[in-house]
Each structure stands twice: as C-alpha cells, then as structure tokens.
Amino acid sequence: MNILIVDDSAAMRIIVQRALREAGFEGHNITEAEDGAVALESVMEEEPDLILCDWNMPNMNGPELLQALNNEGCEAVFGFVTTEATPAMRDKANQLGADFLISKPFTAQDFADALAEFT
C-alpha cells in the first residue's frame, strides 16, 4: 500500500509513521509532504492508497488539498489528523468527503480503529 503523510511538522510526520507502525501497518511505502501543494504533486506521481493529512498548513491547507484531489478524481482513502477538531471542522471534513478525522493527541489504537474499515 502507498501511504502519503502530509504535515508541516517534521516531528509530527515521524509520530504519525510510528503510530502507523504500532498499529500494525508495516512494510508499506510511505511518502511525506510538508504542505498541501507538495502533497498534490506527490499524489500525481505516487498514486497513494491512503492519505493522512494535517488541517493547518502553509501554502495549501488540508481542506484545500482534499478539494483539489476531489477535482482531480483521486480515489485514495483520505483522513485528517488534526490538533483541533471543532464541530465546524468535522462538518467541513465530512462535506468534503473525508473518510475519517483523528484528533490529536492520538494513540496507535486510534489509527488501528480508524483504518480497520479501509484495509
């Protein structure tokens, strides 16, 4: 499986990878991107099956990326991993067609639960 992790924090990208490993997702091809614009390019090249994406980022934020991917007809499973998760953000994520939203601080178990449906 190709997995793309999009977050402007390098530490957070490491933590998400570690949580995925702890949740039993090993041996997958993982790519990282530090914002939505970089992620969009990477999606064209890598064709990920799963995208885990932060909400607030410079250049292109998470919801803008998801909108752009929708316009491109991208069919990857898309989940937000965010620090804040207000009801308005949850509504927006749902409207844009995100598959799930995990709010930080998360555990490996949260990833296992969220991804169980899609793997």
Binding site: A85, R90, A93, N94, G97, A98, D99, F100, L101, I102, S103, K104, P105, F106, T107, Q109, D110, D113, A114, E117
Partner: peptide
C-alpha cells in the same frame, strides 16, 4: 489522563 484522541468516521 490517557494520551488519546477522538476518531470520527464519516
């Protein structure tokens, strides 16, 4: 406090 978040599945 467990270090855990919340999950929404849409």
């Amino acid at each position: 406090k467990p270090v855990g978040g919340e999950i929404d599945l849409f």
